[in-house]
Amino acid sequence: MKVLVVGANGQIGQHIVKQLKNSDEHTVRAMVRKEEQAEELKKKGIDAVIANLEGSKKSLVKAAKGCDAVIFTAGSGGSTGADKTLLVDLDGAVKTIEAAEEAGADRFVIVSALQANNRGNWSEKIRHYYAAKHYADRMLEASNLNYTIVRPGGLLNEAGTGKVQIAENLDERGSVPREDVASTVVASLSEECTYKRAFDLVSGDTFIADALKSLS
């Protein structure tokens, strides 16, 4: 399927774009905010489109036109305030969900946060971040899209192991390499066990493909 990656220049997004480019099953369109980012991607033979999550929904519809699926892995980043988190992680996600529906992209995978579904487990320090993820996820669940919500634990920059632990609810805190998050997201695209499902994700002892199938 043709996949639009929203947040393609982010740390997880870059892994996703690379994996999709090397895939025999999918093709990729990378959405970025800046012309120079798009030019760099095009030099690598990657279809790139410029749009801003704080801009109009119309521009997001245009970016998603012709795509079968959307992966949302954008975020305002840890150095911004709560206002940016609401504009990007919440409203940006919701606009992208609406744009995907309007553009005719049926499949939607979103990168959320571990236990975002469970208010009792939110970190007080970044409660606004969890709230943004929580309500973006709920809007996705209420949409007409064939969704998957991936809720990773603490994000690491070390190399992926290809092995994870997945469950609809993981009580214990944990971490996971960004590369493994990307691999899980890409594998979820065509794994029917993940359709209309949400799950927590941390490092573990099970190969990603097998872990996803365990959701059935």
Rank of each mutant, 00 (worst) to 15 (best):
M1H: 01
M1A: 09
M1V: 02
G7H: 00
A8I: 00
Q14D: 08
Q19I: 04
L20F: 01
K21C: 03
N22A: 15
S23N: 03
V28W: 00
V28G: 01
R33F: 06
K34S: 12
E35F: 04
E39Y: 04
E40K: 15
L41F: 09
V49Q: 11
V49R: 13
A51I: 12
N52R: 12
N52H: 15
S56V: 09
K57S: 11
K58S: 14
V61G: 05
K65V: 06
G66S: 08
G75Q: 12
G77N: 08
S79D: 13
S79K: 14
G81D: 14
T85R: 07
L90T: 06
G92I: 03
A93T: 07
T96I: 07
A99T: 07
A100D: 00
E102S: 10
F108Y: 09
S112Q: 09
A116N: 12
N117Q: 14
R119V: 14
G120E: 08
S123L: 11
K125Y: 13
K125N: 09
R127M: 08
H128E: 13
K133G: 11
A136T: 04
L145I: 11
T148S: 12
P152W: 14
G153D: 11
L155T: 06
L156Y: 07
A159H: 08
G162Q: 03
A167M: 03
L170S: 05
D171V: 09
V176P: 01
R178E: 07
S183K: 15
A187D: 14
S188K: 03
L189D: 02
E192F: 05
T194S: 04
K196V: 03
A198M: 11
F199M: 07
D205R: 09
F207M: 10
I208E: 10
S214L: 07
